[in-house]
Design a protein around this nucleic acid. Structure first.
Length: 509
RNA sequence: GGCGCGUUGGUCAAGGGGUUAAGACGCCUCCCUUUCACGGAGGAAUCACGGGUUCGAAUCCCGUACGUGCUACCA
């Protein structure tokens, strides 16, 4: 039926790109690439009222950062252009008219007020259904109830109208969802959805079906929130192109907020202190910035990984997957049916793992930027590289390289005196005065040699080396943190080590 | 309210009639290290509930509860 796997991601350019959105892209992408298929990005901007400046470009930046490169899109071109629905407006009308002609759709002239009135009436009658459907359409202002002349008259007079699908009650609708299995719907409670709006733009329902057909989409994976309107799409496929042309569906589970219940939203992230968007999003009107995973210091490899295993696993104990491995191992059938709560702690764990796993070169540039943003000029890239190697296993997010690594660039300006004071005495003071001299004459300046000299002097002076080491550490970095103190000394160099010991000596008295 | 979808530790989850019900995150204890982290060894903690079916149910069926999604000329 389809000679090639073709999937699409169809975002609306209305703001930041949500975690759930990225995961939807990811699952589509993985499936397509697994079968050497195409990944298409189509912009669903049929609601001009919600259009947000800059959102399009932003979405592609996010995809780019994630490494999920489209084969066809508004920016990548392709044989089925245009890929922006607002530019395809005329196409949809054609199909709406075809539906009209076949009797599967009708004109509706009801005003907003009339629709509201209808719902009020239904509510007061105690009806369970407030929908515009077969139960009430013959009492509404549409071409089904009106005579042909009346309809023509309204049309000729330029009366605003929409085109609605005519859903026949009792018509069987079913499809096989690749995740949920066989699905059946009762068209008795499917409403006559608007297909073409008064402004001539299609609604999502018409647009997806038409574009999926025209763009030869073979598999359509989308969020679970679309399940209730799936029967409308199936019907449209049936009326317009035939069910044998329809893509295979899969409805992905939702990503839920970590506390309580409900779909994860931007607000939850703000409230709980973690990002929900892939990258920083600046609202063009309010200029409010919403934090993204990237800017918080996530690696794209980790971001992709954590999203992939939220609702999917390969059945083994493996948790760390590269994009290539995911393409190899992904199977849509193994995606869960139930939603998953997002756990930021686990998300950070993935990033930690990827920082350790990846070569420093993968993120060195970003770390350098972070240092410079914090006012530390990196004159020597080699040195930064070396420092990063020393601290990478203790960094969870990229900015941790700064907090863990500043000590290699700047002497401490405060000391953990609470730890040092109880152990500080004249013997120790003289020890450190002597060690300075010893260091100055040390030939080889490496961790092993430094440690040997350090311990030798300790035993000569009959002081426990352990206590001295702690103090030495505080002298070098200000607190009880960081890698092995002799390694620090080696790295910052002889002159700097001596300088820091001298400084500390003055403070400790 | 109606309709849909779902429900294995706190979280992610394996498992699909017979298991001591994996593993991971987080938490706790210990070891390593006189720092922190990494690493290692342990620990606490689970099949929503009620009925069936069956020799046997986390697994199959039916209810109930709970959650969630949709119910727009938004996607």
């Amino acid at each position: 039926m389809f000679d090639k796997v073709r999937v699409r991601f169809a975002p609306s350019p209305t703001g930041g790109l949500h975690l759930g959105g990225v995961r939807t892209v990811l699952f589509n992408y993985l499936y397509a690439k697994k079968y050497n298929g195409d990944f298409i990005v189509r912009i669903e901007d049929t609601d001009q009222g919600r259009f947000v400046e800059g959102a399009e470009k932003y979405i592609f930046n996010c995809l780019d950062w994630c490494g999920l490169v489209p084969d066809e899109s508004i920016f990548h071109g392709g044989p089925y252009a245009p890929y922006r629905q607002s530019e395809r407006k005329a196409i949809y009308r054609q199909y709406a008219e075809q539906l009209l002609k076949k009797g599967n759709a009708y004109y509706a002239f009801d005003t907003t007020a009339e629709l509201e009135f209808m719902r009020e009436r239904l509510k007061s009658e105690g009806s369970n259904s407030l929908q515009y459907d077969h139960r009430i359409r013959m009492s509404m202002n549409n071409s089904l109830r009106l005579s042909a002349e009346e309809t023509k008259g309204l049309l000729d007079a330029g009366t605003p109208y929409v085109i609605r699908i005519k859903v026949n009650p009792g018509e069987p609708v079913s499809f096989t969802d690749m995740i949920r299995g066989d699905m059946e719907f009762d068209t008795n409670n499917v409403d006559d959805k608007v297909l073409l709006k008064a402004d001539g733009m299609p609604t999502y329902h018409l647009a997806v079906v038409v574009d999926d057909y025209l763009m030869k989409i073979s598999h359509a994976f989308r969020g679970e929130e679309w399940l209730p309107s799936a029967p409308v799409h199936i019907l449209l496929w049936k009326y317009l192109f035939g069910l044998d042309q329809m893509p295979q569906w899969a409805h992905l589970p939702l990503i839920l907020k970590p506390d309580g219940n409900g779909k994860l939203s931007k607000r939850d992230g703000d409230r709980l202190g973690f990002p929900v968007y892939a990258m920083d999003w600046t609202d063009p009107i309010t200029n409010d910035i919403t934090k993204g995973f990237k800017e918080l210091g996530f690696l794209p490899e980790a971001f992709i990984n954590l999203l992939a295993v939220l609702g999917w696993n390969d059945g083994t104990e493996q948790e760390i997957f590269s994009l290539e491995e995911l393409i190899d191992k992904f199977s849509i059938e193994r995606v869960h049916k139930g939603g998953a709560k997002f756990d930021f702690e686990k998300a950070k764990w993935f990033n930690h793992e990827w920082i350790k796993k990846l070569g420093i070169g993968h993120y060195e540039g970003r770390v350098k930027e972070i240092f410079e943003k914090n006012g530390i000029r990196i004159a020597d890239d080699q040195y930064l590289h070396k420092v990063m190697g020393l601290i990478k296993e203790r960094c969870v997010l990229l900015p941790d390289f700064y907090t863990q690594g500043v000590l290699f660039f700047e002497a401490p300006n405060a000391y953990d005196e609470v730890s040092v004071k109880p152990k500080w005495n004249d013997d120790k003071k003289s020890y450190f005065n002597d060690i300075i001299e010893l260091f100055e004459h040390l030939e080889a300046w490496d961790a092993v040699a430094i440690e040997e000299a350090f311990k030798l002097l300790a035993s000569q002076k009959n002081i426990k080396a352990g206590e001295l080491q702690m103090i030495f550490r505080v002298m070098l970095v200000g607190g009880k943190t960081g890698p092995a103190q002799f390694v620090i000394a080696e790295t910052i160099g002889k002159a700097e080590t001596i300088k820091r010991v001298r400084n500390a000596l003055e403070v400790f008295g």
